[in-house]
Amino acid sequence: MMKDDFQIAAIPDICLGMNSRLASRTTTKVLGRLLEPLGLDPTQFPIMVMLHLHPGMVVSALSISLDIEASGISRNIQTLERKGLVISSGGRGRKGKQLTLSPTGLKVFKQAVRCWNEAQQMLIAELGEKEVNEARQMMRNVSVAAQRLLATMDKGG
């Protein structure tokens, strides 16, 4: 047995990255089950949220605001376009094509928001409102701290 095995064994319990990814995946699965009857994937919901809030966004802006690679955004946009939920107009490529929800997309989005709200209420019922609010704040704090660290690392510090 290695000297550091006791520390390695603790990683699944103490690692912020592993635990945040696990929480993200499992909460996303809850939303996914509720969105399934609408033919939506949980990765498409945040895109639809942003297009509802900011009609005319381009892929590069969506990529930055959601912190998802542009190729992933593009694949999801193509799927949403095929389903008739998103309309693209204007220029070409990631920086020029302006994206909006179609009238059908807006109807489906409103149903998806109800699914999202149901998922939120289910998690609140399971955890308690105080714990959910504390978890949200803690996740924001961890994200901001990691962003500060990345900025420092990018500067070579």
Rank of each mutant, 00 (worst) to 15 (best):
R92I: 13
K107R: 06
V86L: 05
V113D: 08
F109K: 01
V108P: 02
N133W: 04
T100H: 11
C115K: 02
L123N: 03
G84T: 10
A125P: 05
L106P: 00
R92V: 11
V132E: 03
K83V: 04
L99D: 07
E131T: 07
K107Q: 05
Q111T: 02
K83Q: 13
Q98E: 14
F109I: 02
G93D: 08
L127D: 06
C115N: 01
A119W: 01
A125T: 12
L123D: 02
A119C: 09
L99T: 07
R82L: 15
E129R: 14
R82G: 03
W116S: 13
K97N: 08
E129S: 10
L123C: 01
A112F: 04
I87Y: 15
N117F: 10
A125K: 15
L127A: 15
S89C: 03
E131C: 03
G90F: 14
G96T: 08
E131I: 07
F109Y: 11
G93S: 12
P103Y: 05
G93C: 12
F109M: 05
E131V: 07
E126R: 14
K83D: 09
A125F: 00
Q120C: 14
N117E: 15
Q111Y: 01
A125E: 13
K110D: 11
V132C: 10
C115P: 02
A125V: 00
R114H: 06
L106H: 05
K130Y: 06
S88M: 02
G90E: 12
V86A: 04
G96Y: 09
V108L: 10
G105D: 00
K83A: 10
W116K: 13
L127P: 04
A125C: 00
G84D: 10
E129I: 01
V113W: 06
Q120Y: 15
A125G: 11
E129N: 06
I87M: 15
K107F: 08
Q120A: 14
K95R: 15
R114I: 08
P103E: 12
S88D: 02
V108I: 12
A125Q: 11
K130V: 10
C115R: 03
R92F: 12
V132Q: 06
L85N: 01
E126D: 11
K130C: 02
E131N: 01
V86Y: 05
E129A: 13
M122L: 14
R114P: 03
G128Y: 10
K107T: 05
E126Q: 13
Q121C: 06
P103G: 04
V113M: 13
N117D: 14
E129D: 11
K95H: 13
L99R: 03
L101W: 02
G105Q: 01
A125I: 01
G84P: 11
G128D: 12
S89W: 06
A125Y: 01
V108D: 04
G90A: 11
R92L: 13
L101M: 04
T100K: 15
F109S: 07
K97S: 11
N133G: 12
G84A: 13
G91I: 00
G105C: 08
